[in-house]
């Protein structure tokens, strides 16, 4: 693939809080339109990695580029980069003092020249994409966890981002809601060609959604393996732990989806 296809690139990335190193020597790329799943145990630094990708935290070493622009130091560049991605936070992170409508409308008011009617239409459309048409007047506290996540997704998509970051999309959801969110992710990529980065510690969705997986290791504090999950599972060259981990999931995958095996 040519380098123009690369949407996100991390080079020799080191993530640390003060002297506490979370991850180091991370090198990976995410291509345009790809779904990348970053896997790691809880506490190993997945959210931290996302926060760095989104420019909320500055890398201790190395660099991240999004669409060829360096994430971080230059506020003007950051402004442009921010317009290109949306984040669905682990907890949904809806602004609790605002209704769903206002949550989705705020970025639109902030960044677009749409008038009030157009914004109303746009909000309704985004909410309908995530199956929440007609819920605009509700406050986040009046929704179930799955609905809050989907509403958070509607907000993340408000500005038609080219990239979506997901932090543990299925965490805290019942299996059915988690499945629906996975489907939603696939549909988004299909319909909009969105580049998607999902960090998770749950295996369930990896074979369903991931084109490419990156395994983080809490012990060595760096990446353990990278590649398409099926290839990682079958390739004798991939680390034993990763294969073992993926095989456990593969069974479940084939059980529920025999045609694919």
């Amino acid at each position: 693939m040519s380098s123009t296809d690369i949407m996100i690139e991390a080079k020799d990335l080191k993530l640390a809080y003060g002297s506490f190193v979370v991850m180091q020597n991370l090198n990976f790329t995410v291509h345009t339109g790809e779904i990348k799943v970053i896997m790691g145990g809880s506490g190993c630094g997945k959210s931290t990695l996302l926060r760095h990708l989104a420019g909320m935290e500055a890398a201790s070493a190395g660099e991240i580029t999004i669409g060829g622009e360096k994430v971080g130091p230059h506020e003007a560049a950051m402004e442009r980069i921010r317009r290109r991605f949306g984040i669905l936070f682990q907890s949904g992170a809806l602004w609790s003092s605002m209704t769903l409508y206002e949550n989705v409308a705020l970025p639109l008011e902030q960044y677009t020249d749409l008038n009030a009617n157009e914004i109303a239409d746009m909000v309704e459309y985004k909410l309908s994409l995530v199956g929440l048409k007609g819920f605009g007047a509700r406050y986040p506290s009046e929704l179930s966890g799955g609905m809050q996540k989907r509403a958070g997704l509607a907000r993340a998509m408000a500005l038609d981002p080219e990239i979506l970051f997901f932090d543990e999309p299925s965490a805290g959801l019942d299996p059915l809601s988690a499945r629906r969110l996975d489907d939603l992710i696939l549909h988004l990529r299909e319909a909009l060609g969105t580049t998607i980065v999902v960090v998770t510690h749950e295996l369930d969705s990896i074979f369903t959604i991931a084109d490419n997986a990156l395994f983080l290791d809490a012990e060595t504090r760096t990446a353990l393996a990278e590649g398409p999950p099926k290839k990682l599972r079958n390739d004798p060259a991939s680390p034993e732990r990763v294969r073992f981990f993926l095989r456990r999931g593969a069974d479940a995958d084939e059980l529920s989806n025999p045609a694919h095996s």
Partner: peptide, 20 residues
Amino acid sequence: AQIGSMRVNEEVDALKTFGI
């Protein structure tokens, strides 16, 4: 308490991602 719980809830981070 209001702002603190917004921070715990990542709502403050969500603001930052929109450049607010």
